[in-house]
Amino acid sequence: MKRIWAGAAVLAVAALLLAGCTGGSGSSSSGGEGGTTQTKPEDASGAVADPAAKSDTVISTNRDVVTTGSVSLTVTDPIAAADRATAIVLGVGGRIDNSSEQPGSDTQKPSATLVLRIPSANLDATLADLKRLGTVETATLNATDVTAQSKDIDGRITALQTSVDRLLALMAKATTTADLITIESTLSDRQGQLDSLRAQQKALADQVAMSTITVDFHAKGTVPAASPTTFWSGLAAGWDALVATVNGLLVALGAALPWLVVLGILGAIAWWIARWIGRKKDAAA
């Protein structure tokens, strides 16, 4: 029995030693040379992510955006406010595409309208400065992404430029008059298309680089009323329109009444003369 227990103990120690050797070899193989273990990052689903594949998917933040908008301001002096707005825009490198000023009169208050071209990089700060010139009544901004259109124009320009270069090379090698005429005709057509696309590219780039903002300056009490948004406001607006129409008709009738009286008198005189002549003719007959 002692020999049996001794043999069992020897076998247990040997099994433990064998397991330790196996674990050590596994850890050394996974660590590689240098004894460091490298593990790949896992994504949210638990799968192992490939760093090389992740580096290939780069999201570009460069977008071509055309920004337009309008701002309506109530100011004390619209003409002076328009001059200050012009100075603000010119100070940031912008320009004035259109300017309209209406001086005040006895029957009409002054107003001014500017179409501003503001560098897109300075749009927010410039709008903030413009809004400080008076009380903001309305303000709208519209952004249109034209990245696809811009890339399409760029690609077409590249293709046409390549075609033009090839035609120029063929023209230099032309040996007959017929070939030369054909190449010149095709080259003229391609060059015209290329010039048109370059003009479109330039115009689009200008719209992207310079935002277009229309600013209206009104004197106090002349800002147009907001459009009705409820049934009662619509009813009130309809009643006001009816009253204004009736008043307009009455004013027109008052202005035309003197002319109608004069025309009636002249018509009665002409009718009496025609009747008198008719009677004379009847008496003579």
Rank of each mutant, 00 (worst) to 15 (best):
R198Q: 14
L123P: 00
A178H: 05
T68Q: 05
L130R: 03
I273F: 13
G91V: 06
S30T: 12
D189V: 15
E184C: 04
T177R: 07
W5R: 11
R279F: 11
P224R: 06
T162K: 11
A270H: 02
Q149Y: 07
W239Q: 07
V13C: 10
T222P: 02
G26Q: 15
R117V: 01
T135I: 11
V75K: 03
T76S: 13
S227D: 11
A174N: 00
G104Y: 01
G91W: 05
G254H: 09
L18N: 02
T176D: 08
A268C: 09
L167Q: 10
G94T: 05
F231W: 06
V89A: 05
A270G: 07
L249Q: 15
V215A: 07
A87D: 15
T68S: 13
L180G: 11
T176H: 05
L16P: 05
A6G: 10
G91N: 08
A112P: 04
L127T: 03
A225R: 08
G104L: 04
E137M: 09
A241Q: 10
T147H: 07
T36Q: 12
Q201M: 09
Q161N: 13
T86V: 10
K173Q: 15
L260P: 04
N142E: 13
S185T: 14
I157F: 06
G248H: 07
A9D: 03
I213M: 08
I153W: 01
F217A: 00
T147K: 07
G23R: 15
W272D: 05
Q102H: 09
V66Y: 01
G155L: 08
G248Y: 04
T229N: 05
I157M: 08
T135Q: 14
G192D: 03
A125H: 05
L123G: 04
V66E: 06
D152E: 15
E184L: 09
T113I: 04
P228I: 03
D64W: 14
A139Q: 09
S25D: 09
L114P: 10
V223D: 01
K151D: 09
A87V: 07
